[in-house]
Nucleic acid binder design. Structure first.
Lengths: 317, 317
DNA sequence: ATGAAAGCGCTAACAT
DNA sequence: ATGTTAGCGCTTTCAT
């Protein structure tokens, strides 16, 4: 029995094998508990059937949702996902990518926390790369993202429909989400309705950040009657701050948040949110990176978000 | 320049290299953008410096916390973590483990959702394995877990200290956490205080499960004045249910939950919780699996949980 | 201090 | 239809 025949049976090709021998091989595999060594296969074929994924803070529900969705989408195409949890800083990203590159990943998926300059980093040269959740379409950069401007615009317009005339903004700094687009959508919606610009709180993309922002915005006597929060995590912190300040949602303050993770469904009151179509984007991201690996060029328009109406905007009680 | 010398430089051994040549090699590596091929190294050395991790629902904050903590702990020892998100059923677990085995992982970390029978599964024969969060000490099974009985007992005793005389339980079915221990801790605390057994709601380990359990327990006119919830996710659902029922926490119903993930800090009111020392357990789990790989036998007593006092039990207002 | 070469387990081209 | 064999990139023994 030659090793070639075993290979043909295990891989179903490239040459045919007599049914009788195929059965003998299959039996032997079972009884011996044989498992193919994927390192050897990778070394021989040059392909690992593995995609690298670099995410910051996987304990953030939005990124966790990405991780799950990408893993499912990749598995459907016969790929595994090698996940590295980056600290978010460029150095950590770089280490993660280098590590993945050494493991001969077939493609790389990175989060938008990777600012554009880092993309030119030597460690990812030659690796097909798709950027997740970013909007800036650089040349040679494929990115899959949500239309954050439209989402923010729709959220604020909805709040205006509820009669609010001054709408605040809580948003992150740095490169976590896509701050500029959410901010300009928020601003444009107010201005297009002939309303004055609302107050802004810039805080980290976290529960703690949202809490601080809420404290700052709503400790003032002249606080806005509604606020658009650029991430679910911040919205959770804001809810906590309003609770401590004795302000009621949506009666005293109406809220719409951005992301629409499962958390927003179970807060009290539940949060109206602009939901990112994470699953659909994940499927497209995997397709995109495999296309790239096959030197196929593809187009990737922004995905439309969806406004989910719940209690915090005043729609349901 | 021979490939052997390059190997010596890259790995810092096992033989010495003249400083001058070492520098030449380092320069060449930089200018050529050379990266070692870990597949080839794995094939040659038989070790991948990779640990496999099988988790159900990584979007559950508790498991996400495990994932992060394990990755950090493994990185400190020079290992990477290959994470597979299992659906939780034995078949899915089996597929995941087989896949990891083919990748020649040096060790395996699996969640307690893997019931004991599955551990005998052929796919993990020969792979050093550590079970996470389980309590049943089977022979040949190393497991790292929290002392859930003590945690539940302390939680219920604390509620009794607040003057509650009938304490309900919301708990999951199946094998998610370690239901029996939490339940017996809850029961023993009541009985040791000479109190009657409280009502039980058995629901899935999820927000939706906690919501259902809360609805069932607190729709009755004769509802308990306090409840111990066996997981944070269920506690979030319970909070939502009580909100809809118009019951106030902690005035009408006091709550202590189990897990102590970050979520419990930002609910309104904040949740008193029995916190699992995930980080410490993760460090120990990595140590344990590496010990196993080196044929070192070690002992792993249960980790003590810590009761974090917040608003939902009535301690703070 | 460095070079030469074997071999890890697999796949695929070539031979039978 | 099956057997033989070269070689993927690396580490390490052995030779120089």
């Amino acid at each position: 029995m030659s090793s070639a025949v075993v290979s043909y049976v295990v891989n179903g090709g490239p040459r045919a094998v007599a049914p009788a021998t195929a059965k003998r091989v299959a039996d032997a595999i079972r009884t011996l508990g044989y498992r193919p060594n994927l390192s050897a296969r990778a070394l021989r074929t040059g392909t690992t059937k593995t995609l690298g994924l670099v995410l910051p803070e996987i304990n953030n529900p939005l990124y966790a949702a990405w991780a799950v969705a990408l893993e499912v989408a990749a598995a459907e195409r016969g790929y595994m996902v090698l996940l590295i949890n980056s600290d978010g800083d460029p150095e950590s990203d770089h280490r993660a990518i280098t590590h993945l590159a050494e493991r001969q990943i077939d493609g790389l998926l990175v989060t938008s926390s990777m600012a554009r300059p880092d993309l030119a980093v030597p460690s990812l040269q030659g690796i097909p790369t798709v950027v997740l959740g970013v909007l800036e379409k650089g040349p040679g950069t494929v990115s899959i993202g949500v239309d954050a401007y439209a989402g923010a615009y729709e959220a604020v317009t909805h709040l205006i429909g509820h009669g609010h005339a001054r709408i605040g903004l809580i948003i992150g700094g740095g490169s976590g989400g896509n701050p500029e687009l959410r901010e300009s959508g928020w601003l444009a919606a107010s201005r297009d309705a002939g309303l004055p610009d609302g107050p802004i709180a810039r805080e980290p993309w976290s529960r703690a950040g949202g809490y601080e922002g809420g404290m700052r915005l709503f400790s003032s006597v002249n606080y806005p009657s509604a606020v658009f929060v650029s991430s679910d995590m911040q919205a959770l912190g804001l809810l906590r701050a309003l609770h401590e300040l004795g302000l009621r949602v949506p009666d005293d303050v109406a809220i719409v948040s951005f992301d629409g993770t499962e958390d927003t469904e179970y807060t009290s009151p539940s949060l109206t949110a602009v939901q990112q179509p994470v699953k659909a984007m994940a499927v497209e991201a995997v397709t995109a990176v495999l296309d790239l690996a096959a030197s196929r060029q593809t187009e990737h328009p922004l995905h439309p978000p969806k406004l989910i109406l719940r209690e915090s905007c005043g729609c349901e009680h």
